[in-house]
Nucleic acid binder design. Structure first.
Length: 576
RNA sequence: GCGCCCGUAGCUCAGCAGGAUAGAGCAGUCGGUUCCUAACCGACAGGUCGCAGGUUCGAAUCCUGCCGGGCGCACCA
């Protein structure tokens, strides 16, 4: 467990000032520093931190404005001035001290890092074999990968797991369909496309009563053969389909910078299913219901029981997730295991956690479903069965194509347009997803996803590239923070405040499992950066000390943007 | 029917462990480049925070009810 009293050496930007302010307030109000929550004023003119004095005044039986005034007059905090505005006590950091602190922090590799050390498992992406990854998978992949990086940055020992959907009766259907309509040449040319076609064809033919019955029988037989574990034709085909699918998925993962430590599909837990069921049975929580084995969850406030085994004796989704969770616990004794899965599966997670609770495990509440909203289309839902899908690769390709046109137009001299177009196009798609609250459903809109101006990934990439450009043209080394006079940078508090809030944004994004919080902060940093280099000429001022100081500022900005974008999985090109 | 999520500017969204005149971006109007990339900056305009109650010194934020949209509700995953 983390030790909250452990001094943290990591640079934390504005937090460096919050601690003494809270300590001074705690002493003045005779309260514990932990009970004092400093607010971030909405209006930047009100300073960097604020304390509404209402509740403290009430406790002390005083008038809030009076208390604020009294505190403002008596508090002595190094490098921080306090001012009372009505019942509010506002704190402003000395401009030079602010620049010095943040410049020093943001210049370091570990800006916003913490030393946690806990084991955090992150399950994300988890697409189904034999189907294309579509826009729906984008969310799990991009949010999960970003969260994994955030935890990693905060010092967790992160284990990234891809829980592939590679098992279940659906593969019986696919095998049956392959036997009827499979074409070797087509499979070679476009594996997932062909497998999807077979899947769609199956569901098309299934509607026919006579065909449906015989297809269903063939599918059941095929899955049975697969499940037998023998090295038969079904198994060999399944392995092949899996490998072909993985190769396709990997192309997407490479583009999205999504990596996994463990590639464990549902099939990986196949030989642990029996023992899991036995374990559940031995816990005495399983009962019979119409021939099926279930765990009743009424006592946990869940009306729907959790199905462990069907009346035909086959295992289910929940059984496999239970086996997976138990296996992971045995292997890692994790502090938390996060599942980045759509909100439509909330009940499933509530159920299988409740089962583990009923079993008396000590770790059931370390499992956490991190839900996110569905991707919808203006025209309505897409359906894999009907073959109506928008492939993720197509989304990325279109974004890259558009980015390529824009690079061509804006920077025809660019030495490597293909690379930068890929970075910008993919970056736009990733950032667009991550800049929205994960819990809300998103209506997919090409115009928005392909937008490169305003609050977008490409505009941040652009700011980063501009910084790189200035540093390139400087043709001199960037002075280290200790070499510059921070007073020369005191005229850009907006930049330092924006940068100084980066560590808190990283922390909060991780705590709330909400990458959007970091994305929003990066946008603020980007805007502050644009204003900075717009208003403050860096090169050619004739003042060497000033130039050095501003170069250091640009470098801090560049580093923080690269760090933040990197955490989100958005590439940071040095020229665009 | 029951459960969960969402409803803020024309559009897309922040803000919601209560706090100061509700903020961005896009679209609209206007302005900015003899100067490190204008994928930028600035100004104007735009809001009964779904509706109605309640709690509070104070509610977009918390509670209740309603309306609207989405998702889920045992032998699929």
């Amino acid at each position: 467990m983390p030790n909250p009293t452990m001094p943290d050496a990591a640079p934390h930007g504005l937090d460096a000032f919050a601690a003494p302010i809270r300590a001074a307030l705690a002493a003045a109000l005779e309260l514990d520093a932990d009970t004092i929550q400093l607010e971030r004023p909405k209006n930047e003119a009100h300073g960097e931190f604020a304390l509404p004095c209402f509740r403290f005044a009430k406790a002390a039986g005083k008038n809030p404005a009076e208390l604020a005034g009294h505190l403002a007059a008596t508090l002595e905090i190094p490098q921080v001035s306090a001012e009372a505005v009505g019942p509010f006590l506002n704190f402003q950091i000395d401009r030079t001290a602010l620049a010095a602190q943040v410049l020093g922090d943001a210049g370091q590799e570990g800006f916003g890092r913490a030393a946690d050390g806990e084991v955090t498992l992150v399950e994300y992406s988890s697409p189904n074999i034999a189907k294309p990854m579509h826009v729906g998978h984008l969310r799990s992949t991009v949010i999960g990968a970003a969260m994994a990086r955030l935890f990693d940055h905060l010092g967790h020992q992160v284990v990234r797991i891809n829980h592939l959907g590679d098992w279940g009766s659906q593969f019986g259907k696919l095998l049956a369909a392959w036997k009827r309509w499979g074409e070797e040449a087509e499979l070679e040319a476009d594996p997932i496309g062909h497998l999807l076609k077979l899947y769609v064809e199956y569901h098309e033919q299934e509607k026919d009563e006579k065909e449906g019955a015989s297809l269903d029988a063939e599918a059941k037989a095929a899955f049975l053969a697969l499940e037998s574990g023998e090295d038969n034709e079904e198994r060999r085909l399944w392995v092949r389909f899996t490998e072909l699918s993985l190769a396709e998925f990997q192309k997407i993962y490479d583009r999205l910078d999504a990596r996994f430590d463990l590639l464990r599909g549902e099939s990986w837990y196949e030989d642990k299913l029996d023992s899991t069921v036995d374990w559940l049975e031995s816990c005495g929580v399983v009962e019979d219901s119409d021939g099926a084995r279930i765990v009743d969850l009424e006592s946990e406030g869940i009306k729907t029981p959790c199905l462990i085994k069907t009346s035909h004796g086959t295992t289910l989704y929940a059984t496999r997730d239970l086996a997976a969770a138990k296996s992971r616990w045995d292997e890692f004794q994790f502090a938390r295991c996060l599942y980045f899965v759509g909100s439509e599966q909330k009940l499933h997670f509530d159920q299988f956690k409740a089962v583990l609770k009923r079993c008396g495990t000590s770790w059931w509440d370390r499992l956490e479903h991190v839900p996110f909203g569905l991707v919808r289309f203006p025209e309505g839902k897409l359906s894999t069965r009907a073959g109506r899908v928008l492939r993720l690769s197509e989304v990325l390709d279109r974004a890259v194509e558009l980015a390529r046109e824009i690079v061509e137009e804006k920077n025809p001299e660019h030495p490597d347009k293909d690379t930068v177009a890929e970075q910008v196009g993919v970056g736009a798609v990733i950032f667009h997803d991550l800049s929205h609250a994960r819990n809300k459903e998103v209506v997919f809109d090409w115009k928005e996803v392909l937008s490169f101006e305003g609050d977008t990934g490409p505009s941040l990439q652009y700011t980063h590239a501009r910084c790189c450009s200035i540093l390139r043209r400087a043709e001199r080394a960037v002075p280290s923070p200790s070499e510059v006079d921070p007073a020369l940078l005191a005229d850009a508090p907006e930049l330092w405040v924006a940068l100084g809030r980066f560590p808190a944004a990283v922390r909060e994004a991780a705590e709330k499992r909400e990458p959007m919080i970091l994305a929003q902060q990066l946008l603020k940093i980007g805007t502050a950066g644009n204003v900075f280099y717009r208003e403050k000429r860096v090169l050619g001022t004739g003042d060497e000390a000033l130039e050095g100081a501003r170069l250091a500022a640009i470098d801090a900005l560049r580093r923080t943007l690269a760090l933040g974008l990197g955490l989100l999985g958005v590439p940071a090109p040095t020229e665009m």
